[in-house]
Design a protein around this nucleic acid. Structure first.
Lengths: 236, 236
DNA sequence: TACATTTTCGAACGAACGTTCGACTCAGGC
DNA sequence: GCCTGAGTCGAACGTTCGTTCGAAAATGTA
């Protein structure tokens, strides 16, 4: 091809990695659609057109960030799980690995979590593949846990996705100065889950009743009532 | 002012609500930044310029969607909690209310969860205020729970935010055809949390060791190695 | 020094963006 | 019949978007 494509040398890879790092920061701050290539140019110190020497489109840029980040977290998990067979220990490793990586790479993980739907076509399919492998690994661990005797009643799909929710949501609230260490949070979440999932849930049929309920804040209440006429319903 | 502002009558409010519904669908599908006013015009059947008779800016449109949705979920929670004093029951109501509303209004709740950072200025501050009230309510419930004897070791902040993560993440995975009913999921999550938080976590100091770890997929492994030279670190 | 290749970037492209403007229709009150 | 104000919209505004191109600069090789 006429374009350089990928014959390159360390210098090229190093500079691309530097651009990806800056791009991840910009994406994490403004979102993929809200961020412009010009923002990334400004942040990285590379001219607008100069950027296109290192990647061919904005989508590819996001793809590369997600690919590297996701590959690494899966790879690390597989390494740490190797040799460990006890289901409870495997759950702890899963949680610890995910949160360690998340809190050590908050920028990239936010981009991975928050911009999960924006890729299209082949890029999307490739990332979805890795996600599927990660998810299957987690699902297997939970099914082993169930087979091992603990947690006989849980729905593994709901359990795994709830756990990921608990962990992935962290990018919306974690403040290093205020919150416990990654290890401590990982232990807390792992314990919540192991304890919580161990004793099956007995679906307590308590009819939730509503009392009178004072309107809370006059301003929002008024605005809210305004649109209450034609019931603001969901569109699907 | 010269603009009509808000002297209006039911017809106005009803049409605005209809536009908000369509806008919420578009925002939930393409994201706030990725959606154009022209998309909303197409979806709602109102001309591009005609839309501006009903709201004054794209930001205000998002603000209104978030305001109505958030106000309603908080209002419902306050109603359902009124009169109930037992901490465990209050946790169950919190979870049930949140998930019921989430799964009955998936479109609006996705917009509320996923576009939490895009508002600016006064709009942002107003939504943040409601969020704070909601969060404080939940935090109080968990602190009562702790005072009541159960869950004496938990960190209420981490517990509440983990719970919200578990619940809010649901917009990324819930499929009505595949997954259990809202009530069932709510019971599962409430039970996981009550059980999990009841027995304090004993921070098991198990040094997670790594084994060899085979590279998984040659394509991604290669790409990954390419960027591994200059360690792809987080930018903050 | 001379040449070939890699790297850089200013300037510009067409397309799409949010928003505005003025003219139009239409119903209700006089 | 005429006036008023609510509702509607086509056309256009200025700006920003992702991407391209050709030429210059830098680098490596002889």
């Amino acid at each position: 091809m006429s374009k350089p494509e990928h014959s390159h040398y360390p210098a090229f890879d190093r500079k691309l990695a530097r651009i990806l790092r800056h791009a991840a920061v910009v994406f994490s701050e403004k979102g993929y659609e809200g961020a412009s290539i010009r923002d990334i140019s400004r942040a990285s110190g590379v001219s607008l057109s100069g950027l296109y020497y290192y990647f061919e489109s904005k989508q590819k840029l996001l793809y590369l960030i997600q690919l590297y980040t996701f590959s690494e977290i899966v790879l690390r998990l597989e390494e740490r799980l190797a040799g460990v067979t006890e289901p409870v220990a495997r759950v702890r490793i899963l949680v610890r690995n995910h949160l360690d990586y998340f809190l050590q790479h908050p920028v990239e993980m936010k981009v991975l979590s928050h911009e999960a739907e924006v890729l299209a076509g082949g890029y999307r399919r490739e990332i979805a593949e890795i996600k599927k492998r990660y998810y299957s690994l987690a699902l297997d661990i939970f099914e082993d846990l169930r087979r091992a005797g603990t947690a006989r009643r849980m729905n593994p799909r709901v359990a795994v996705l709830s756990l990921f929710g608990m962990m992935n949501w962290i990018y919306t609230w974690h403040k290093p100065k205020v919150d416990p260490s990654p290890e401590s949070i990982a232990d807390t979440m792992a314990e919540i889950f192991l304890q919580g999932v161990a004793n099956g849930h007995r679906a307590p049929r308590n009819g939730v009743r509503a009392a009178s309920g004072r309107a809370a804040d006059s301003r929002t209440a008024r605005l809210h009532r305004a649109a209450a006429g034609s019931k603001f319903r969901a569109g699907m």
